[in-house]
Each structure stands twice: as C-alpha cells, then as structure tokens.
Design a protein around this nucleic acid. Structure first.
Lengths: 338, 338
DNA sequence: GCGCGGTACTTAACCGGTTCGGTTAACCAA
DNA sequence: TTGGTTAACCGAACCGGTTAAGTACCGCGC
C-alpha cells in the first residue's frame, strides 16, 4: 500500500497538484465542481496530509509544546499535571493538533528546550506553567519569538497572554471560612516562595489575616507529600499550635491529615484542615477534606483555547479563568474549646 | 536572525550540501578534515536540524506515540500514568526523541489514532498500555505496520514485543503475606476484568488462594476511587466480612481505607489492607498502607528502551521488567480475634 | 473590435534536509 | 605506462506539500 499523496489525487482528478492543494485547504482558486471532485477522490483514496511536508513548506507544525520542570516522581504524585494535560489534549484533539510534552529536571533545561523548539520550528506555541517571580522564561520566549500562554497571575506575566485563577479572592474565602468558624491562629503550609502563585497566595494570606485579625504561622515547603508532612508536624508540635491549617495543594493536605492522625489528634475536633486544588483524593480521606476547588481539566482546556486565539492574532491579554470555590467538608469545624 | 540551514554551512565551509549532510550525520563519504571543518561551522552558526525536513526525506519522525484511553479525570487521579510518562520521557530526552501523547475516550478512538499516525508517518513507534484480553489493537498495529511495545503480559501479547511485571508471583507474595498473618477469608477489589493485567491477577488470586486454602470474595470495579469505595463498603457490610482486602491499585486502597474508617472499623485491627502500585500516597495515609511496590518511573524508561531496541532491529521478545515487591506497612496485622 | 478584469486553473520554485549516481584525483599493481 | 580501485566530493533528484507568478478563457463595457 503505497503512500497516497496529492500528486496521485491530482492525477486521478485530472488537475494539477496546486489545484488539489487549494481544494483541500478550502482556499479560493478552484471551482466548486472541481473542489468537490478532488475532495471525493481524496476521500476514496483515504488521503491524509503528511505533517512533515506541510510543516516544511507552510512553516506550521500543528503542535503545541509543554515543558514540565519537575521530577517524574513529583509529577506522578501531583494530580494537577495529568489533569491539566488531559484538558489541553481535549482541545488539541478537536483541531488535530498534537502536544509535544517534555519533562526536564529544572528551569535551565526548560529554557534550553524552548531555544531548541524555536530553532527547529518544532512547535507553533507553548504553554508555560509554574510561573515564577521575575521569571527568566518570559524574556527568553520574547527573544526567540515563541508564542506562549502563561499559566499564572497577570502581575507576573509582564504583558504576555496569561490565564489565571483569582488566588487572592480564594484565599480570602478560605480565611473567611476559618475565621467564621472561630479560629484565631491559622497555619499555612505553602509551596516554595519563588513560585509565582505561592507568592501571590502569601500576599493574600497576610492581608486577609490582617483584615480578620488572625494570628498566623507559615511554613514553606517544596510541594511534596513528605515536606507537607514535616511542615504539619512542625506546626502541630512546636510553638503555639494553630487550630486551622491551609495547604497549598491537596497532596500536602493529605499528608498533613495523616500526621495529625498519627499524633493522636482529630480533625476537625483538634484542627481544621483546608486543602487546595481539590482532586478526588480530598473526598477519599477520612475525614473528607475541605478544599478550594477548581476544575483543573477545564483549566487546561481554557489555556489551550487561548493559545489558539493567540496564534489567530488575538492581542496578548490576561484571562481570568475562575476563582477556586470553597467546598466545605468534614475536616472543617470550630476550634477546640481549650 | 535568519534560519541557519545546511546550505549556509555548505557555503561557508566551501563544500556541497550533500557533503555537509554526510559530515553532520557521521556517515562515510567525507574526510576527517572536512568533517571537522563542517562541524565547526555548524557549531559556530548554532545550527539545529529542521525536524520536518529530515522527516520528510528520511522518513523518520524521531517521535514515539503514546495513547491513553481514559478520561482526563481518571488520568489525573491515577498516579501510575504520569509516573510512567515521566519515565518514558527521561529516555526519549537523552536521544532527543519526542513523545506524542494523545488522550482519547476509548479504545476505538485509540485505534483511529494509530491508523492516522501510521498513515501520516507521524511516529516511529508506539507504546501501548492497558492490554486487554484478545486485544483488537494488536492485529491493527500489525496491519498498519506500526512498531510497538506492549505493556502487559506475554500471554496476551501474541508474539509482539512486550514488557511485563510478574503479577502472578506478586499476587502469590501478597496472599502468602496475609495467610501467614492468619487470615482465612480474603477480599479482592479488582479492576475491570477485560483488562489483561486484571485478568492475570484474577487467575493468580484464585490459584494462590486455593493453594493456601483461603476463602475469597472478589468485586470488580472500574479502577476509580469512587468504585473502590463502593466495593469496599459492599465487602465490609454485606455477607461475611473478609479480614483482609487486596486492591488492584492504590487509589482504590486509599478510598477503601477511608470507608473502613468511616464505618468505625480500624485497620489493621479489624481488617488488613494491601494496595497495588505503591505510589507515595500509600505512605501518606494513616495507617500507612502495605503495598505491592514497583518503580513505575523506571518501568516507563524500560519500555522506551525496548522500543528503541525494536527499531534497531531487535526481534520481538517478552521482557520481564520486575516482580512487584511486598512492602509491609501499618495496615497489615493479624485478623481480629472474633 | 479592443482592452480590461476576473475566474479557474497550471507551472514551477521553494521549504531543508537525505541520498544516489557520477566525476575527479590519488594511489596501486602489473 | 596503463587499467582498475577507492576515497572524497559534487550535483541533482527527491520527499509532499504550499504558494507566487503566469496563462488561457470568458464576459463585459465602450
């Protein structure tokens, strides 16, 4: 079964290669009758465009790039990424675009990948996650001219297209929740503060607790389950024990719950726990976890759509995707009487 | 900054395009002196090969394909996939191959993707996961001539290259463990039985329990947390309650633990729980979960290596990757005195 | 009758590599 | 000296599309 090319279609339809190309791409230059005839032949021969050939001449790769700068192990633990990738895929699939996914150890490698992709014309655009404060990837992407959608707050995006969730409002909602339950000393187990969204939440956490007159204790971690457990142990056993803890992802919240249980404490009787991101895991623990919930799969889809828009000439803009919603579950309760 | 091509290199090095191609690809046909000179010029100009052009003429795409036939939501819950993908990526990165990842709703769509990829010459080979009994993908891949490595048992692979873990031995170890603790009635929360590895474990579970003189109760599910919870509730509240339960993945085990807790029962006092796959989550619950452990990231790497081997002409063969090892944790204990 | 504009094509260059047949010059054996 | 090899390199075709430029034909207005 030899490859079927437009040359063959042209032969059978009795027209030239060029005409076939116009017909197949819905471009003017052929009559409706001819177009129909070409389409019919292409159909019969089960023609599919050769990506490489199209890319070579049209300079489009019909591929989006996504680089994840985390270890494979971390990625497997964090439900966020797979859900996000799934959402992106859903949109790409519709337009028969492909996703080039690369997993690298650090941001330096990530930047090297962008350079390579740009030089190779490997991708039409990239999706950039985990935006940092003063992110070095932003000037690089500008320099190499790679269209990009950033997943992060507009204040960090330096004018590039970004999609963000309103972490500030969400943090306010989270603290309103624990404050209204009567908590006065609130802990926070945060990610690394060079991550943009962590930094944003830090700010929001501080101003909200000031507004509500709450005392706070914050521990920064690396997002892993282990460090979430360690941070929780520290909060629970050293110094004044907070009666509520807000986590930066659900993995650390689950680890925290386990530590709380292990210390012979009870949630919510002794401490109220609030997770962030709300994957299914939050409904599988006992007690179930209160969480700031948003739809991560849809988040990925939204980002992919924005990248298509950008390629079609949309001006760079900040798009608010959603504000995570508070979902109250069993891990919420009033502080212990003490 | 115009694109730098081998034509430019040829001009500067004073040789023909062809010679440059030979030099850059380490092929005979140029002298060492010329090769060195060309390499130096290419280096200076920061030349990178254009993938599309190379693919078009050489008919290699330097891309592997992986299709996941699960919903994005399921994928985000299951730590297995992201870890596996990460492991594959590690190997591909070294050889600067790319991974084309596609998420589709079902096997029919997956097969359509293979057809398309084969026609487009989109990928050099594919990795196929979740092999079924009498898997329809196997004849299709043969027909369209797509090199493939199957992730699954040799008995299901019909002579194609596959990488497998010895689930039978692992299941024996798991049941030896619970039997040695004194359990006589063992439950099993299994995945859907049309999945090959589930089927294998079903067989192994039956023959091992027969060997050990155990009574059994098996519930089949769809691998999700919800269905794992439902299955556990059924085992715990309807009919004779098993004193130990073996799960087919860790997500369901965690959901099961939550149900056990919710029913006012204790692990391991009332029931011993054994998970499968052992992601970090098993160490984050309270009590921690006994699990059949294997390194999923390395599993992905192994599979990727085998696909490279296959493309380099290795004969199709079954490769035993590993046997999951029993890791005993807090959820294991003797059956209640009753 | 002539020029003009538009439609429906054809032709051929081009994208950036790979590869194959052919040429040249150096070397070697008879 | 001559015929035959061989290494080193050149030139051009080719992969399968896209697209700018060119052509043939038709209808229309003046």
């Amino acid at each position: 079964m030899a490859r079927v090319t437009i040359k063959e279609i042209a032969r059978r339809a009795g027209v030239s290669k060029g005409a076939v190309s116009y017909a197949l791409n819905n471009q003017p230059g052929v009559s409706e009758a001819t177009r129909a005839r070409v389409l019919k032949v292409a159909e019969e021969l089960e023609w599919v465009p050769n990506r490489a050939a199209r890319q070579l001449s049209a300079a489009r790769s019909e591929t989006f790039g996504l680089v994840l700068a985390r270890s494979a192990k971390t990625l497997s633990e964090e439900p966020f990424y797979m859900g996000f990738v799934g959402g992106v895929e859903e949109v790409l699939g519709e337009k028969s675009y492909a996703l080039a996914l690369q997993v690298v150890p650090d941001i330096a490698e990530e930047m090297a990948t962008y350079r390579k992709w740009a030089a190779e014309r490997r991708v039409d655009g990239v999706i950039v996650v985990d935006i940092r404060v003063d992110d070095p990837r932003i000037p690089l992407l500008r320099k190499v001219g790679l269209p990009a959608v950033l997943v992060g707050d507009p204040s960090l995006a330096d004018g590039m297209t970004c999609v963000w969730t309103d972490a500030t409002s969400a943090m306010n909602a989270a603290l309103d929740h624990v404050a209204s339950l009567g908590h006065r000393l609130v802990g926070r187990v945060a990610g690394p503060s060079d991550h943009g969204h962590v930094w944003i939440r830090d700010q929001a956490f501080n101003s909200a607790s000031e507004r509500l007159g709450l005392e706070t204790r914050v521990v920064h971690t690396d997002f892993s389950g282990e460090s979430g457990a360690a941070a929780t142990r520290k909060l629970m056993t050293e110094g004044v024990r907070p009666t509520a803890v807000v986590y930066d992802n659900d993995l650390m919240a689950i680890a925290g719950l386990s530590v709380v249980n292990g210390l012979g404490l009870k949630a919510p009787d002794d401490v109220t726990l609030v997770a962030w991101d709300d994957s299914t895991l939050c409904r599988l623990t006992h007690p179930t976890l209160t969480a700031m919930s948003h739809n991560i799969v849809a988040y990925g889809s939204e980002v992919a759509h924005r990248l298509f828009d950008l390629l079609e000439g949309a001006r760079p803009e900040a798009h608010l995707y959603s504000t995570p919603q508070l979902v109250v579950r069993e891990s919420s309760g009033p502080p212990p009487a003490s």
